[in-house]
Design a protein around this nucleic acid. Sequence first.
DNA 1: GTTTAGGATTCG
Length: 639
Amino acid sequence: MSLIPGSNYAYTPLNQLKDGTVVNVYGVVKFFKPPYLSKGTDYCTVVTIVDQTNVKLTCMLFSGNYEALPIIYKNGDIVRFHRLKIQVYKNETQGITSSGFSALTFEGTLGAPVIPRTSNKVFTFTSEDHKRVEALREWASHHISPSSALLQLCEVQPMQYFDLTCQLLGKAGVDGTSFLLKVWDGTRTPFPSWRVLLEGAALEGDLSQIRRLKNLAVDVVVYDNHVHVAKTLKIGSFLRIYSLHTKLQSVNSETQSTSLNLEFHLHGGTSYGRGIRVLPESNSDVDKLKKVLESVDLTATQHLNPVCESQCEDSIQSMSSSGSVSPYEMERCLQLFATVLTDHNYLEKTPLCAILKQKAPRVYRIQAKLRSYKPRRLFQSVKLYCPECHTLQEVPQDSDLETILQESATKTPDSKLQNTSLYDSNTWTVKDDPGERKVAIHFVKNNNTLPFSHKYLILTEGAILREIYSLSDTFHSIILVRSGSEDLELLDLSAPFLIQREIRHYGCKQCSRLKPIQNLSSLLDKTSWIPSSVAEVLGVVPLQYVFVMTFTLDDGTGVLEAYLKDSDHFFQIPASEILTSDDLQDKMEAIMDLLCPPGRKIDIYPWLECIIKSYNVTNGTEQKICYQIFDTMVADDLM
DNA sequence: GTTTAGGATTCG
């Protein structure tokens, strides 16, 4: 490239770009993908910039030469592009490399020295450029929030994407599509890093150093397109790994206890700028990292990491308005959320000690650990709830249903009520121990014909429990009925009003106003038998299966008991199905063991983030405030 | 001189 003395470049503001032109621009980096090998012949980087006009421009930059692409390390960096072609794609203006494209990059920090990063041997750089960079820095400091993705290992939470600045300690192939990087940044993760099993593959690196650093070294597995990059990295080099994903995993060790490990994955693809970039020694963040690495005292790191203490102190101070802070409580700032909010994200967190002093009703966002919960036997938490009268009742047991069925089996089905336009009827005589019993089954018709058996709704009279069990294996839906004076009637709301396979649907005795069975003919769809529709035409107010639990929550400032009443939102498990599914019971138990790890100190428990509401309860003359959890669910990664 | 990608997380 030749330098023309006195030549002046004109820079086009981003709000004045025209389709088909080739321009020079300045901008602050809002988003970027570190350069990666495209599926064509070149390296590619995608960069979105913004300038004082507040207009954004996304640029697709290609070059066969990795170094020729802008050397961007983080959002907020400032770039100057020469000979950028402007085009329109899908109604959006975009920039793309044109012949002779060239880029300079600058640190975006106010006051930092203005040193252009470029691989070009010759380039123009005037006092005018210097001013432009400083003006953009000044503007960005007021208009762009600083990058929050850069975290130290001691700050990471489970289930999070972040950018890690680290040093490479070791590397090894795992299999064809994944590759292991052992890295450190001098701080300790809130949970021990997972250890990736290497079968026969040799770990390249200083093994004695890795052993000495023990829990300061973490295992990062990179996948697919990142493998070839990882292979070329040199041990000891400084890296930034972009959009690294953490995942908390419970691991069963040989001893009966389970432990929680933190996994680090760099998933395949380049979404959200996933990738790896080598940082040069001259980088200011590398400078800071080196100082941390040099000051690490390997004996001290067994406990708390000094690097994080000041940050912890700040967040503990802002969280608790009173009380002293113990070193253990400092660790609590590590904000490991095993639950997520599904609404009310705008709320500020309130410490429990403050909530306990306030009047009801109110809604709060809290951060706490699950110290304990009741009932411990999880099947005891399943109840039936009436959304109309708000009463809770126990789920009837088999023995209750058996008694009701036995009682009704003593009555003989009325032959006048058989074979109507709604159903075809069949009756049997069953020889029982003491005598004989009549059973009637009424097969509900669809458009005057009988559907396939897996879509049948049958009405049964006189059948006992074990017969109901075998009938429910064959038929989609069963309604228990008896012969009334003019029509068939629902048997009894102490029994289910509808049985579908293992699931029994109950109705509220207080709120239901029963209607004639013949009303089933008003259902237009007589094949899917949706419980709520069946309930509606029969005048039944259906009861909801819910988990009812008491959580004892503790955030270090106070302890609070909160109810959880949930049908399927919090655990993402339907309460209606858990009683008949061993798999779901195991799943729920596993979730509770993660929220409240048995046999562990509370220090290692994960943090929960919850929305709770307070409300007044009057019991005789006694008034108290109760709390209920809502709009909260267990984090995806725990399920 | 063409193509690549065209921001928008997770199989592991």
